[in-house]
Design a protein around this nucleic acid. Structure first.
Length: 802
DNA sequence: CGCTCTTGTCATCCC
DNA sequence: TCGGGATGACAAGAG
């Protein structure tokens, strides 16, 4: 039974994973929640492992699945977690913890691709059928919109990426939450997390950076003198990680280069993904951007493993086609592909974000291209939230690129150029709203920069028409900053988190989990409990937790359950501290394997035949048969026989099990049947009270443990949440910097184009642009406050035409 | 021998 | 009022 169960569980999980990897959505949560109690029990075990009183409740519940309100095991809350734990414990696949996220990813894809039922296969990606969905303009926005809408429910796991092994817990949690929902931001978040995890592994981001770098290199060719050259050491310092939009090429280069340093773990895998992405870009890019965009060239730093290359070079190669010899490699590769795609999408989003948000790139033609991306861009969060699983799935990943780009291009074509920077227009008002009507110069430009503004004028124009996709400065900025921030965070805080997690008290289940066997964890406990519950149904009369003849049937399952049990887990589940196999071999000991191993000590000595007088001789027989058992037996005797001995001495005619477990009515009947003396009755009642209290104490302790565990989990979640929030904060700060930079460049551009009546440029040292409340931009002499605007010699209102 | 952990038990509260 | 669940506290035993 247990074996069957175990295999069934593992098989299901693995199958699910495989399906999810292929692209088929498998919604386990639904199964578990909608359950089919038997199925659920097979997978998860009985709902209550501890509350023997449950069995009493069985009478009251038709289905027998009544859940004790306080039984943590029963909590649906743990359902998904257990399952995911099992998934993680599947060593066969050796899938990294990120696998869990895979589910979500596919759910994403599913939502995007098809609103169909859970089982609806999105496998069609291979032949590109899935692409159509993606191509579908409606579908893509919907997906993105959905993702955007879900942002509020940010995934706690953001820190997972940095945390690595720690991550899965959170993922599980979230998965459970996500369970039946459509694709949400959480999913996207998970994707993001996966992304970061990949980055931590040294893969993924580089692709992004690389391409950006390529673009940057091109941009560098453009005449763009660094405006900040003169001063703002601090600012540049602060922006060091960020990409200076205009003149930042050196900065970009630095950051771009710095990434490998920050990620010492970068390995061939990373390079693989990078190259793969590049290849995909080349192969799938419809625009002929190659002419404009030499990026695909692989930098020497990239080392491609030969085996990977063929599959990746084909780009569309489906995982199944990959050499089975190295499944892990496949998985990793797939993940890398996913990462690459997501990164690309993120790039787009970021581009759109920055450009649209700023509403301005000083460059004319380039901007138009850039603006194309912007329709997607109203998101506040710079991070790639619209990555769809669908696109993320390997098979179609390469194919997705064109779609993505096409979409953007279409949008670009549609997008009016009015989005360009216009000082006096609504855009400017937007800017005002963002920054307020303040002195732009003061905010964005240090005085000295203004003085050197002439240099800046040329910079704004981005020569590369393809800059939309490649607005590398932004992209690099974001990605690199992401990396930097993540790195910084992960190293500082994530390590702390890991330490904390590692330092978890023995109570922590995870610490004792054996990755090898799914049944070793909570499952084992629950499974054991399940068997016990089953037996309980046999002996429904009321001898709930204690062994009766009928319970013999449950011996084997219970053994199996306990057998899979890991000693390390004993802290949580004490039930199996005795080797069940021993009991199994000894028929006499059948009684020992009563339903609740928790109660073994008490019940075991007398469990065989309630009506029979306590068999002291039996023990001796057992001892002879198995010296091994002796210690536990003695232990049992010592522990459990106190009341038994008293009962014996008082000539109590029935077993303690009956005394304790019989329902009140039956118990009273029993007492009535036998004419007992007062002391006997008192003893019996004491025995009953103690027995019940003992079980209650056990349950109570179990609950305590569960509570502690839950609290630990909650703490972890909160930590992740905190980490995520920190990261978000950093991202926002970064975005703000970017916007400031853009504003700075725009400011300079506008300012340098201004001429006084005599056609002379305004000296930046003497004049500055200021926003007025109505959105217009005024040029004012420096030192003149806004209150004095009316006095200023010249008032120029200028539409910003970009 | 002392410490820790587990378990049983008691007292008490509460339903 | 009784039965009994829940839980804090204590003690005993084992490692």
């Amino acid at each position: 039974m247990l074996y069957l169960k175990k295999y069934f569980t593992e098989g299901l999980i693995q199958f699910t994973i495989l399906l999810s990897l292929i692209g088929v959505r498998v919604d386990v949560d639904t199964y578990l929640s909608n359950q089919l109690p038997p199925l659920r029990e097979i997978i998860l075990g009985p709902s209550s492992a501890y509350t023997q009183t449950q069995f009493h409740n069985l009478r009251n519940t038709l289905d027998g699945y009544g859940i004790h309100p306080k039984s943590v095991d029963l909590d649906h809350f743990f359902t998904t977690r257990r399952l995911l734990n099992q998934v993680r414990q599947l060593d066969r696949l050796s899938v990294p913890s990120t696998e869990l996220s895979t589910w979500l990813v596919h759910r994403d894809s599913e939502t995007v691709v098809s609103a169909s039922s859970q089982s609806s296969p999105s496998i069609t990606l291979d032949n590109g059928a899935g692409l159509e969905d993606v191509n579908n303009p409606d579908a893509t926005p919907a997906m993105r919109g959905g993702s955007g809408a879900s942002e509020s429910t940010y995934n706690l796991n953001a820190a997972d990426g940095s945390l690595g092994a720690v991550a899965p817990e959170g993922n599980q949690e979230q998965e459970s939450r996500n369970g039946n929902d459509d694709l949400t931001k959480e999913d996207i978040d998970l994707i993001d997390i996966l992304w970061r995890q990949d980055i931590d592994l040294g893969a993924g981001r580089e692709v992004f950076n690389y391409s950006n770098r390529q673009k940057e290199s091109e941009e560098e060719k453009q005449p763009s003198p660094p405006e900040n050259k003169d001063g703002n050491e601090e600012e540049q310092e602060s922006w060091r990680n960020g990409v200076n939009l205009q003149g930042a090429q050196p900065v970009d280069g630095e950051t771009g280069e710095s990434i490998p340093e920050q990620l010492p773990g970068l390995g061939s895998q990373t390079s693989l993904s990078l190259q793969e992405c590049l290849r995909l870009l080349e192969a799938t890019f419809p625009f002929g951007e190659e002419s404009e965009f030499p990026a695909p060239v692989v930098t020497p730093e990239i080392s491609v493993s030969t085996e990977e290359v063929p599959s990746t070079s084909q780009g569309l190669t489906v995982a199944p086609q990959l050499p089975p010899a190295e499944p892990q490699l496949d998985l990793e590769q797939q993940w890398q592909d996913i990462m690459a795609i997501m990164e690309l999408q993120a790039m787009e989003v970021n581009n759109s974000d920055t450009s649209s948000g700023n509403g301005s790139d000083t460059s004319g033609t380039t901007e138009s291209n850039t603006s194309a991306n912007f329709e997607l861009s109203n998101r506040s969060t710079p991070i790639n939230q619209d990555v769809s699983l669908h696109q993320a799935s390997l098979p179609s990943c390469s194919q997705d690129f064109p779609q993505i780009f096409n979409t953007q291009i279409d949008s670009a074509s549609i997008t009016p150029r009015t989005t360009m920077l216009r000082v006096s227009s609504g855009n400017s008002s937007n800017i005002n709203s963002t920054f307020g009507a303040t002195n732009l110069t003061g905010i964005f430009l240090p005085p000295h920069i203004n003085s050197t503004s002439n240099n800046v004028t040329s910079t704004p124009i981005l020569p590369d028409p393809f800059s939309t996709l490649l607005e590398e400065s932004m992209l690099d900025e974001i990605s690199l900053l992401d990396l930097a921030m993540e790195e910084g965070f992960s190293q500082a805080q994530a390590s702390q988190l890991e330490d904390e997690l590692d330092s978890d008290s023995g109570l922590s289940l995870d610490s004792s989990h054996s990755p090898a066997s799914p049944s070793s964890s909570e499952t084992s406990c629950s499974s054991a409990a399940s068997s016990s519950s089953t037996s309980a149904t046999f002996s429904e009369e009321g001898a709930v937790g204690y062994s009766t003849d009928s319970e013999v049937a449950t011996v084997e399952p219970e053994e199996g359950a306990v057998g899979g049990y890991q000693p390390g887990y004993s802290k949580l589940c004490r039930m199996s501290y005795q080797d069940p196999s021993q009991f199994h071999s000894l028929p006499q000991l059948d009684s020992i394997s009563h339903n609740h191993t928790y109660n073994l000590p008490l019940s075991s000595p007398f469990s065989e035949h309630p009506e029979l007088p306590i068999a002291t001789g039996k023990k001796s027989v057992r001892d002879k048969q198995s010296s091994k058992l002796q210690p536990p037996q003695d232990l049992l005797d010592k522990h459990s026989s106190r009341d038994e001995r008293r009962a014996r001495s008082m000539k109590i005619p029935f077993s303690n099990e009956k005394i304790i477990n019989l329902p009140v009515e039956e118990f009273n009947e029993l007492l009535a049947k036998h004419h007992l003396s007062e002391p006997q009755l008192a003893l019996i009642r004491d025995i009953r009270r103690r027995g019940k209290n003992k079980m209650a104490a056990q349950n109570c302790r179990k609950r305590k443990l569960d509570t502690i565990i839950n609290l630990e989990q909650g703490v972890q979640d909160l930590r992740r949440d905190k980490a995520r929030l920190l990261k978000e904060k950093m991202e926002f700060i970064r975005s703000l910097r970017q916007m400031k930079q853009k504003m700075q460049s725009l400011y300079q551009e506008v300012f340098t184009q201004l001429r006084d009546e005599e056609g002379r440029p305004y000296p930046p040292s003497e004049y500055s642009l200021q926003y007025s409340a109505d959105g217009s931009v005024l040029i004012m002499p420096r030192g003149v406050t806004t209150a004095e605007q009316n006095r200023k010699p010249e008032k120029k209102q200028k539409d910003k035409k970009k």
